[in-house]
Design a protein around this nucleic acid. Sequence first.
DNA 1: GGCCACGGTCCGTTCACCGGAACGGGTTCA
DNA 2: TGAACCCGTTCCGGTGAACGGACCGTGGCC
Lengths: 289, 289
Amino acid sequence: MKAPADVAPASHHPLAHPVAHPAPQGLVLSAHRAAPGPESEEVGGADSMNSVLGKVRPILESFTSDDAALSLAELVRRSGAAKATVHRLAQELVTWGLLEREGCDYRLGLRLFELGQRVHRQRILREAVQPYMEDLLLITRETIHFAIHDSLDVVYLDKIFPHRGLNAESRVAGRLPLYCTGTGKAILAYSPPSLFVDVVRGGLKPITRHTVISPGRLRAQLDRIREEGIVLESEEIRLGYASLAVPVFAGGTTLVGALSITAPTYRMDAAGYATALRTAALGIGRSLA
Amino acid sequence: MKAPADVAPASHHPLAHPVAHPAPQGLVLSAHRAAPGPESEEVGGADSMNSVLGKVRPILESFTSDDAALSLAELVRRSGAAKATVHRLAQELVTWGLLEREGCDYRLGLRLFELGQRVHRQRILREAVQPYMEDLLLITRETIHFAIHDSLDVVYLDKIFPHRGLNAESRVAGRLPLYCTGTGKAILAYSPPSLFVDVVRGGLKPITRHTVISPGRLRAQLDRIREEGIVLESEEIRLGYASLAVPVFAGGTTLVGALSITAPTYRMDAAGYATALRTAALGIGRSLA
DNA sequence: GGCCACGGTCCGTTCACCGGAACGGGTTCA
DNA sequence: TGAACCCGTTCCGGTGAACGGACCGTGGCC
């Protein structure tokens, strides 16, 4: 009885999920973690698992924005840690409040939301920007974004939209590539040239059939943006929609992010919106001085 | 040399932060970390410190909303863990992205903000509520709050304000007591009576000289709110300011939070704002059905 | 110069963590 | 009916990750 060999040895992959976790969210293009190279490369994932935080991380990051709640089994699958381990750590996270129980499932907890709002730089920026975004919403009745730069992406710090507005593709704290968004191009145009090189090296993948994927054309766009101080991105992210964006400089000098108006192409009054957008950006910059 | 006794034993409180975390922020009534009191009381904190997460928690929660960055020494002081331990864990948190380095100091990282925005329930709610808050801002040009209930507090899920608006006392993800805020009273009025008992047992402390701290008067207020479906809180949190609030019911039945308009008392047009507020709450409730 | 606080590192000890195994309950098949 | 499966949960012995006192180099202050 209980022949120990009945546990199929082959079924035990030391790491079912060697490569940490995809953690895509936002759009489809998760940009992975650069091209890793030979598949022998699960070291980064493997040796990151022999610390407690190295296990907590894939557990918490198992949750995407679309997951309301995950079962223990699902957490085990996504995190790659042993079941007993996930169970124990999840319990500890529940007592902390970073996770909450919902029947038998786990969901991200209110305390995580609270902690996330304590991040200082983002909070200060949001509070400074928000009234100006309201102004733009009032004037345009279109979706307004404020984005900052991180690695090869823009991260949306805030987003407001009217009832008729667009609520897809982007969300607060969501990421989209620098090269194909209005805010991203605005930031890219006023960043050191090395960032442009990195973006190109990272690969320009088309999102729609209008996405600019030629480095030359992208560079020309950026030159033009620097001349005009504003950029109109048209249907590069979603067909039928365009974004008008400007960079925001604290005190008129330091680039801190970009502000944009997104609307269906047929409603996009670029000429009319431009001055409002520029004015708002100047106001924000002054209040951040 | 290096007499081990030179480390003043009295200066070393094994736990500067014995009571888990007060998590004050928001208002002045932070109660610090309780009165120093009997120093023998680090038990509750002590046994929570023999796990890794038990140390990471006080480290991360050392940061309040007002701390831009903390030095290693300050983290050691607030968390109560050993220096080498804090150093090691902080480094690990930096590679994760939950912390970032700023010169020699540490600050909360962008990744923490991103994780916090993935909390599903709050995200869904905010996205549903936000356009209606814009409407109210447009109509009133005053500060608009949406709050949910947690333990004995309200937690502000979102807050928008115009240029002339009030940006103090409350902030997104900040907490204020149920018994003295408009949103809190609205929620309290439509919650099970046991919550009222808990609130009273938790103590009604006056914030201003207008704060209602008599359980009897509070109960009478709640009865009145249930009759009228709306509440006007006047100067209970901050002198010179009033809030008009209504509860929000998903599908017209399930209490999910409360919506409020905050304005200087002299500008508060309660009669005029009431219908707008009620209409918005109904709209939100319907969109959540 | 002496002193102190700070950030950072080392290293021997030990106990918290790990994870295979087993349990009980629920559901799905033959 | 019961065997097979998946689930969440608990147990427990071995072990290596985590711990923290001690130490180093530095910079600011008397």
